[in-house]
Design a protein around this nucleic acid. Structure first.
Lengths: 136, 136
DNA sequence: CTCCGTGCAAAGCGTTTGCATGCCG
DNA sequence: CGGCATGCAAACGCTTTGCACGGAG
């Protein structure tokens, strides 16, 4: 269980913005929006609150902008297995779901590429740390 | 057609490393490896070459470490449509491929989460720029 | 010979963190 | 009243870029 956070005006405002957002705001956008209600809120605080919300599972990070870029000499599209324990990335060579193998057009959006990543724990990390339970 | 690059020793070495790599090296790892053959190669050059290779389609970036993180108040897993024209991110509400809805274990790797992103062009950008052809 | 790709170092960008203060509980 | 979250600014990690030089064609 995640420890409950102290209730502050900053947290209230940030939570409200993220929950009300129809788009997918970046931290900077949340910050700009939050300043309308709390002119002295700092960007660092916004980041801290967003990180807490993520840990609480109340918000998810759509992109994955934290780690360094990793390059792959294979240029065909294929899913990757990303180990949350050691950070290693492996190719996934199983069969692709049909909807992924033939993306074309959806909702007026023309698909030209996709990225599919599975997150979890590799054999080595599970052996070392004990197998973590499913997501959460 | 992408203009051919000048043939240099640096480019040759970096291409060799990326193509030979079984894992998914980061730029820093490519750099360290490259220095074994070219002690004076610079990290900046490695980045420049990797970017060129990406543009040529000879390498792909497994992660997406360039842009800022974007947050989503929806906490259920759902794919996103990322517009390459304007950068906007939309939720995808269609049905999920079966293999994605029930990930569990594959190749000794315990899956606890996944991320599925479709890249393409939204209606607005296609209207403005003309519809780009499929991936390439 | 002409340019482009390189090495180097500094800048850029998004994110995190150390410290003192103030507010929550 | 004690401790944790905040504000501020500096630090951080990864990536890009300006500049002068050297090598490719």
């Amino acid at each position: 269980m995640v420890k409950a956070q102290r209730h502050t005006r900053q947290r209230e405002v940030v939570v409200g913005i993220v929950r009300a957002a129809t788009g997918h705001p970046s931290a900077a956008e949340v910050y700009l929006e939050a300043r309308k209600q709390l002119p002295h809120i700092s960007l660092g605080t916004v980041y801290r609150i967003l990180n807490v919300l993520q840990r609480e599972g109340r918000v998810q990070d759509v992109t994955d902008a934290r780690a360094a870029a990793r390059f792959d000499g294979r240029t065909d599209r294929h899913p990757h297995l990303v180990c949350l324990g050691c950070g290693r990335v492996a190719d996934f060579d199983g069969p692709l779901p049909a909807a992924v193998t033939a993306p074309d057009e959806m909702e007026g959006f023309r698909v030209v590429d996709y990225r599919l990543e599975f997150y979890g724990y590799c054999r080595e990390c599970r052996a070392r740390d004990g197998a973590p339970a499913a997501a959460g």
